[in-house]
Design a protein around this nucleic acid. Structure first.
Lengths: 204, 204
DNA sequence: TAGTCGACTACACGTACGTATAGGACCGTC
DNA sequence: GACGGTCCTATACGTACGTGTAGTCGACTA
């Protein structure tokens, strides 16, 4: 968050990011945002031109902030390939926004997805990680972490936790981390699945 | 798909499932569905009462079909815990519908999510799979596979494949399967992440 | 052959929402 | 101290969409 962020313009942006994330584009009206930000609907138009203009502004802002986060982490010397869980509330919000924007059909978000995949693939290469289809794995990974962001409230409810709380996110992140660190189950079932997959591929 | 599925009622349902899945609830109008099904808008009201009634009918139908699929697989003797990829186009569509419905705020879909988590957790127990937080892992797993379904078009585009094609789904499934079968990366980075996580937990 | 019922269409209604316009308050500049 | 620009509100307009109503057509039944 940059300085001087209590202008009406910033309040509108923050409100929009919040509501777009929670409800999605379509279910959020300009008046909803105006109410949340404590301004009139007309002011949103004044500052952002249209609802789509507001969306684009939110996209640009969020993606820019995410880049800043990434550079911050990089400056600390920790290589974060993107699938390692974070606990900063703001970054969490922005990542969730990104996921939601992908679903809502934002072109900027779609481009962002590709960029994440690029970056993850590059990371695999740099780290010398050997994979049968590095780009495929990178893309699947991006979709999976996206799913965690998008469906976090469902996860929380399934765990009997209050959605949005630290406890819920912590448990989810730990579980996701475990899944990435350890192969799932003994080989038996997965071997069977692998066989089915191979059979299907041969048949195609 | 049951018999006699070319009635207008069935066509409406199929069209609704298709469009709800592709565009989501809000972006799909009743007239869109009517056009896709080749009927008048009024007929939808006649059969389903309201848009929400139609949604509930679609939910019920899809979830029922998914149960049938599951039983079919079970009858073949293959224990499918839900995260093993499938290639049946219809099942794929329904799984994607489920993901979309979760996002669109369907209560039935939310219940379905919990049920999937229950089932996966039970599966872990039955298979004697030892996990630090079985339910947490089950929930994370459900969210991840949900992400794969929901964001499959983004994955396809990132891979340079045409969204919805067999090639795209095959590559994605193979990559996801690989991720579940193998620990990601050497221990170095993940160990660092684990430490960060532990530090955070201690701080809380 | 008259009557009933379900399938289906056409069309009118209400409303929510994005957009457009007009105008007021405040602030700096010459 | 008049002027221009920016921030902001109030209100009106157009429209898309969900819903409600009236009515046609065909099939089945007595």
């Amino acid at each position: 968050m940059s300085t001087e962020d209590f202008t009406a313009r910033a309040r509108i942006r923050e409100a929009a990011i919040k509501l777009f994330t929670e409800r999605g584009m379509e279910k959020t009206s300009i008046l909803d945002i105006a109410k949340e930000a404590g301004v009139s609907g007309g002011l949103i138009r004044h500052h952002f031109g249209s609802k789509d203009g507001l969306r684009e502004a939110c996209d640009a802002y969020v993606f820019d902030e995410l880049v800043k986060f990434k550079e911050e982490v990089l400056a600390k010397g920790a290589a974060n390939p993107g699938f390692v869980p974070t606990f900063d509330a703001r970054q969490l919000l922005y990542r969730r926004y990104l996921g939601r924007a992908m679903i809502d059909g934002s072109e900027a978000a779609a481009a962002q997805f590709v960029e994440i995949v690029d970056e993850t693939e590059r990371y695999f290469r740099e780290q010398g990680i050997d994979l049968p289809d590095p780009r495929g794995v990178a893309a699947a990974l991006a979709a999976m972490t996206g799913g965690l962001m998008i469906l976090q409230d469902h996860v929380a409810r399934a765990l009997g936790e209050e959605p949005g709380t630290n406890e819920a996110m912590l448990r989810m992140s730990a579980a996701a981390g475990h899944l990435f660190m350890n192969p799932l189950a003994t080989t038996e079932v997965l071997e069977k699945a692998r066989e089915a997959l191979a059979a299907y591929q041969r048949k195609e």
